[in-house]
Design a protein around this nucleic acid. Structure first.
Length: 192
DNA sequence: TGCCTGATGTTCT
DNA sequence: GAACATCAGGCAC
């Protein structure tokens, strides 16, 4: 696999959102490893009124304008974390929100973080952060390294990918920038 | 099954 | 002071 930063830094954020479907995240907690597969994503870009980067760089959005291949973690609704993969060249302010993942290995570790089972474990952006024990301490973390690593996989067949409008936003709602793996049970419910 | 709402605090106006 | 890239639980049907 190519160098993560170069790869993600060189592709358009919408392409990146599509390409990240099927890729795997490897998380290590206290020497225990778990692996999940990305099944739902959304693209965000500075030119996009729904994006945190839309109003320019702020202390919160600083890492969105940094180098690709890092984690952008934000806190929202007073109780939830969500995580993104930064893409594109520096200063572009683009990132891909990870909306849902599918457990591949060591589901027990995910349950430890969340206290739920089955699809409820990881079928939403804040749910998967809780299951993977990701909070703002990991904001800016380089995904080429432990304890959270991103493994790029070969692209899925276009026929297996569905594109729709994004979820839970009030601006720029018409862009078809949400992608998910067709018929995957871990895709978030509101996703249809 | 599906709508409605409370929780809870950071960020930006 | 309002908005917010959400979730879970309650209640009506």
């Amino acid at each position: 696999v190519k160098d993560l930063q170069n790869y993600l830094g060189s592709i358009d954020v919408v392409d990146a959102a599509r390409s990240l479907l099927g890729c795997e995240l490897e998380r290590t907690v206290d020497g225990e490893r778990t692996i999940v597969r990305i099944v739902e994503t959304e693209a965000y870009h500075q030119s996009d009124a729904a994006s945190h980067s839309y109003r320019g760089k702020t202390p919160r959005t600083d890492v969105m304008f940094g180098s690709a291949g890092r984690l952008y973690v934000y806190f929202t609704y007073g109780m939830h974390y969500c995580c993104n993969v930064v893409t594109g060249p520096e200063e572009e302010g683009s990132a891909v929100l990870i909306r849902a993942v599918e457990p591949i290995e060591n589901t027990t570790l995910l349950q430890l973080g969340r206290g739920k089972t089955g699809v409820e474990l990881t079928n939403g952006p804040a749910k998967l952060c809780q299951a993977l024990q990701i909070d703002t301490n990991f904001n800016g973390h380089d995904l080429a390294h432990a304890p959270i690593r991103l493994h790029i996989k070969p692209p899925l067949a276009p026929a297996g990918i569905v594109a729709t409008t994004r979820i839970g936003i009030t601006n720029d709602t018409e862009r078809p920038w949400r992608f998910y793996i067709k018929d995957n049970p871990y895709v978030s419910k509101r996703a249809v």
